[in-house]
Design a protein around this nucleic acid. Structure first.
Lengths: 207, 207
DNA sequence: ACGCCACCATGACCATGGTCATAATTGACT
DNA sequence: AGTCAATTATGACCATGGTCATGGTGGCGT
């Protein structure tokens, strides 16, 4: 075992990852150019060079395929933004830094993002679970930001960081929803919209 | 014209309403007993005694049919609860009175409610629009509650009632979402869950 | 090298959501 | 009553998401 195949003894697993990646790539390409609803699962399968049925070994259904596609993007943006958070700034600015990153990402592919947001609540396939895990991580990271502010005395000691994070996330999703109903542009949903919502919530964090 | 047909000269419109009602009834019956995903549109059409295609004259698609079915229920609960709001109680109790009514309604048919909540964001069919209108009304009524509290000095004058209402609604939806992920029961999503979330937001309303 | 088995891939197949050309009603106007 | 335009109903039909029995492929023990 194992002198020659430097990366790994297991070829099976490698092929599986390759296929997974091909599928993700193909789905992303088609979803962004053709549109989510307009793309058929068979098109994705063909573009990824796998059979129809194979697709559903990697995603429970089309919705789950969308989760698979979005998970990476979201994960990347979340990581990038948390690493560049202005640690000394007020909480509102820190949060806006986070959410601006996400909104910019959505703005690059508004139609796909809208489809994603519609299908996000209650995602239950395997990739949906991954997304929920990412959300939990996101909530945790936000709660850490709150914790920092607590240490600095900017946030009351009786505010539970995770609860605060959950509220913030709800407002974030609400802002996205208000965009989806067509009442405001994505930019406005972020800047007058979410900013004011967050500000009103943060008032409640004061000692 | 019009001595005999007391209600109205227009027979066409009447038949249309009848059909609409039959469809709603049939869909409700099937959705609650068989389940939303498990019910086929043809079953609904048959039960309503209309042809397949006719169904889609009254609802753009299956999702819109779900909106049609839920609109009435929600409207009824919203009206009933606003009429029995404890006007002298603190805002938190008033809101909990409202949301308890909604959660109880969801609790009567959890599976259907879950399907509804999944499909609520971005509802765009004709009945989805109706639902959005109902949501606007709901937001407005909540903002009136906030306004009352402002008059009593319980809420700061610089809090914009509609913004406050929107935040409250976001937290409400967030509570429902947290139920859907299976992390908590519906009761817990209401009482420890939503209650605490609202309390934290209301802190921000203080003068 | 060989053969065996667990796991993965395949694509013909199926059920269902949704469409659309055609047919039937309705009410208004003679 | 008779004609006509407009609106609404119909159900055969289609495209697509998703399944499943069958066929292949890598890993592993010998």
């Amino acid at each position: 075992m194992s002198m020659v195949s430097e990366r790994k003894g297991n070829r099976r697993a490698q092929q599986k990852l390759d296929k997974r990646e091909r599928i993700r790539q193909a789905a992303w390409e088609l979803f962004t150019t053709v549109g989510y609803e307009e793309t058929t699962t068979k098109q994705v399968a063909a573009a990824a060079d796998v059979a129809t049925g194979t697709l559903f070994l990697y995603a429970r259904d089309k919705r789950d395929l969308l989760c698979l596609v979005m998970h990476d993007r979201l994960g990347g943006v979340v990581d990038a933004r948390f690493q560049t958070v202005p640690r000394q700034a007020p909480l509102l600015d820190q949060l806006m830094h986070l959410f601006r990153g996400l909104f910019e990402m959505y703005g690059e592919h508004p139609a796909l993002s809208a489809a994603f947001i519609r299908h996000y609540p209650g995602a239950d396939g395997p990739n949906g679970q991954q997304l929920n895990a990412l959300t939990s991580k996101f909530l945790y990271l936000i709660s850490q930001l709150v914790l920092d502010q607590q240490a600095r005395g900017e946030v009351g000691a009786d505010v539970e960081p995770l609860l605060a994070a959950a509220n913030i996330f709800s407002l974030y999703f609400g802002a996205l929803a208000s965009w989806m109903t067509g009442f405001m542009s994505l930019e406005d949903a972020l800047d007058p919209g979410l900013r004011r919502a967050l500000a009103l919530q943060i008032r409640g964090f004061r000692p």
